[in-house]
Simulated scan of single mutants.
Amino acid sequence: MTARLSSIELFVGAGGLAQGIAQAGFHPRLVAEWNRDACQTIRENQERGFPLVRDWPVIEGDVRDLTFSQFEGVDLVSGGPPCQPFSLGGKHAGYNDSRDMFPQAVRAVREAKPRAFIFENVKGLTRTAFQNYFEYIRLQLQYPEIIHLDGEDWTSHLARLEQHHLSGNRDGLTYRVVTEVLQAADFGVPQKRQRVFFVGFRRDLDVTWHFPRPSHSHEQLLHDQYVTGTYWERHGLARPPVPPRLVKSVHRAQAHGGLFAAEATAWRTVRDALQGLPEPQEEPYSNWSDHRLIPGARSYPGHTGSPLDEPSKTLKAGDHGVPGGENMLLNADGSVRYFTVRESARLQTFDDQYVFSGAWGNVMRQLGNAVPVHLGRAVAQSVQQALPL
């Protein structure tokens, strides 16, 4: 049985990463989120008795107002600091953006001194434009006691951190930090969603760790679809011809003769994720209140929706409502419609019993900002297994 370890969950949102961490055996001593709708989502599920969140000690408020020293020695600190400063869909303000909460993540590590931490963000943080700031975040997490001084700009602080790192001095609170961009589809999520993870272990634990290997592969999906045809058989459909854009990829999959299946199973598709759900209608179903058709979807160049037989495009939150292309389903006949709330939740691997609070646009923002539960679980299980008993 998985050991139950303690955690602090920050910037929780609707709870995707935190639920994955809970599934890996961590029990939160603090759950912090400032967004009212996201907090209401968690509270509503607590009232409904949803097991993963039932006992969460939720604090609605600004993480800058919290202190963490009372949790010193906690097993894990985790969270997804607001990512709009670095998102490809945002304004790219980065370190000049007041929404950058990485300094608070570092402070939580400094005060709580956890045995390990997991922080994630959008892949946009790894862009060349943010290369120095990415390194700044990593070094702050590695040496959280080398603090930012009053009046010091971040580049001067980075220079001090680099000097300390090169000196070889490892006194005080230090962490071994590993970073990697993970593709959610590689871990059983029916969505092409890339996130960068920062994972660290306190140096005194002497833990050697690497990110988990992918459990699912695109190549195996192509093999199941266009070499053996088992994908279509499973869905009760006739095998279609190979799309021209996939011919070369299918040939490579065929050359492997399915041997890759010994290491990974097929990527999950939108069709896989939506299996068992009825076609949405404008009037809600009695047992699927969050599975209602939202009218008005339209296709235009660059916004064509997600094909049924691939993982979906990355669900996005959007500053001004929900972007059409990323949050639409593209049917085989070329028609499009918006994903319902329940469909979007499945694409983010939330349990069907987990409900979302707020108007449709607010709920879709919660979902667009979430970490897929299964991706969070994969990383957290690997961390849990590496922590000394």
Rank of each mutant, 00 (worst) to 15 (best):
L30C: 06
H157W: 15
V181D: 12
F134A: 10
V322Y: 08
T230W: 09
V63N: 02
Q46K: 02
Y175I: 11
G94C: 03
Q70I: 06
R365D: 01
A159W: 08
Q104M: 10
L30F: 13
H27W: 07
W288I: 08
T314N: 00
W34G: 03
R377Y: 10
G172V: 13
G276S: 07
I147Q: 13
G318N: 07
A24D: 00
G73D: 12
V12P: 04
V242Q: 01
Y143E: 06
A266M: 01
D204C: 05
E219W: 00
A262L: 14
V383H: 05
H216A: 09
D206N: 15
G368I: 03
W209I: 08
Q385P: 03
G151E: 09
V178L: 09
V181C: 13
H216V: 11
V242D: 00
G172W: 07
S312G: 04
P85I: 11
Y231G: 00
Q254D: 12
Q275I: 03
K123P: 00
S357L: 06
R292L: 09
A112N: 06
A370D: 04
Q194A: 13
F71G: 01
A159M: 13
R195K: 05
T126F: 13
R4D: 02
Q163T: 14
R160H: 13
S357P: 00
V247N: 02
Y285Q: 12
R170D: 10
G89A: 15
H256S: 06
P114S: 05
S167M: 11
E310Y: 09
K113G: 01
T128L: 14
W209P: 03
G16Q: 02
Q281F: 15
D100G: 05
T269S: 09
L161S: 01
I294M: 11
G124M: 12
S357G: 02
A18S: 15
I118Q: 08
E282M: 14
G16D: 01
A255R: 13
G188Q: 06
Q385M: 14
V336Y: 01
L88R: 14
K113H: 12
R252E: 09
N287M: 04
Q348G: 00
P278F: 14
P301G: 07
D206Q: 12
Y338W: 15
H92I: 09
E279W: 07
T314L: 05
H374Q: 11
Y354K: 06
L221F: 01
D351A: 10
G89F: 08
L10W: 09
P243V: 12
P57Q: 07
S156K: 15
R337W: 13
L17Q: 10
G90V: 15
N35R: 10
A370M: 02
A93R: 14
F197G: 06
K192F: 10
K123G: 06
D100I: 11
D171C: 10
L158V: 09
D37S: 11
D55E: 15
